[in-house]
């Protein structure tokens, strides 16, 4: 194992114990096989339970894991072929968002996703997956192209949020995000979005106005980072764990709130343990939803997407106590 997280400590300790026992039994030529089998069973059980019952802040650690597979990793696994396309034709090419065209099981698609770096150097080039307006505009250009040619769109969401900087503001960060939301709502082609890690705020939603919104099991989606919420609400960024719980940011929470359409299970221990296997789960889901959506008329695609978002929100009326919810 590599890149262990603090809550995985019990597993690591148990693994060490097993290793020690194995070594000891070899060195001293004493038969501990029964104990070893027992411990390995315990390990398996512990592992299964551990990842099933992660707290929100633990899921957050998984979602932000340094080794978490990125959009490009999944693109290469899921697509038969892929040509990356660059630039927004207006200002530049933002490497925090990648996109291009290719095929999934022979079906032509356009894919767009936030792109975090594989290492520090890559992360700096990709601005840690935080797009500037030109990133969102590149995404929009590619999605409009897909809409023109009638190709379904697949988006991968993985960003802490739009970049908080002066230049991003001056080039119209708000307008760039807003435009994506509005235009995605009108596309006649099916859109499938998968939150693969961190779905941070408007910068995430800018790729997320889809017919089907899915989340990987250990990913998060929130209006503001738990750290940000804690510092604004309680003037204490150290209360991020508390905020993470209160804000309901995990895939399971969002599914219960009916904001997302499904959860894609992760390989035991997290997607980074086996990218190929993880990608195969995702490909299966993508194909399932694609075939279903591709049978719908353009009108049904547009209206279905519209109603999905139209119905989100909880409110009531004080006069007659009429209540509505998503």
């Amino acid at each position: 194992m590599a890149g262990e997280l603090s809550f995985e400590q019990p597993l690591i300790e148990l693994q060490q114990k097993i290793n020690e026992l194995k070594q000891f039994s070899q060195e001293k030529d004493i038969d501990f096989s029964e104990e070893i089998v027992r411990l390995e069973e315990r390990y398996k059980k512990l592992e299964e339970n551990l990842y099933k019952e992660l707290s929100a802040s633990e899921v957050m650690q998984m979602a932000r894991h340094a080794m978490r597979p990125t959009s490009l990793a999944y693109i290469h696994e899921i697509l038969d072929s892929f040509i990356e396309l660059h630039g927004d034709r207006l200002y530049g090419d933002d490497l925090a968002i990648v996109g291009g065209i290719g095929k999934v099981n022979g079906i032509p698609v356009t894919v767009v996703g936030h792109q975090k770096g594989k290492d520090t150097k890559d992360n700096i080039a990709r601005n840690f997956g935080m797009p500037h307006p030109e990133g969102f505009r590149k995404a929009l250009r590619l999605m409009e192209q897909a809409n023109k040619f009638g190709r379904p769109i697949i988006t991968f969401i993985d960003t802490p949020g739009g970049y908080p900087g002066g230049a991003a503001e001056e080039r119209g960060q708000a307008e760039a995000i807003a435009k994506n939301l509005m235009e995605m709502a009108g596309f006649r082609v099916p859109i499938i979005s998968i939150v693969i890690g961190e779905g941070g705020s408007g910068g995430a939603l800018a790729l997320g106005v889809a017919n089907k919104v899915l989340m990987l099991e250990h990913s998060i989606y929130s209006v503001i980072s738990p750290n940000g919420a804690a510092s604004i609400l309680w003037k204490d960024a150290n209360k991020a764990d508390e905020a993470a719980e209160a804000m309901k940011i995990t895939a399971r929470d969002l599914h219960e709130l009916k904001v997302i359409d499904g959860i894609i299970p992760e390989v035991l221990g997290g997607a980074h343990r086996d990218v190929k296997e993880q990608a195969s789960y995702m490909k299966k889901e993508i194909l399932h939803h694609l075939t279903e959506l591709m049978q719908q008329s353009e009108e049904e695609i547009i209206q279905g997407r519209y109603m999905k978002f139209r119905n989100i929100g909880e409110f009531m009326f004080i006069s007659d106590e009429e209540t509505q919810q998503s």
């Binding site: 807003a178 939301l181 106005v209 929130s222 209006v223 940011i249 997407r305 978002f309 929100g313």
Partner: peptide
């Protein structure tokens, strides 16, 4: 900005209002 106390539901209001505007502009 968004109302943090409604978390993801607040975020989704951005999509809802923008989608309605798409129809309006159409």
């Amino acid at each position: 900005g968004a109302r943090m106390q409604e978390s993801i539901l607040s975020l989704m209001q951005m999509a809802k209002t923008s989608a309605a505007l798409k129809k309006f502009h159409n």
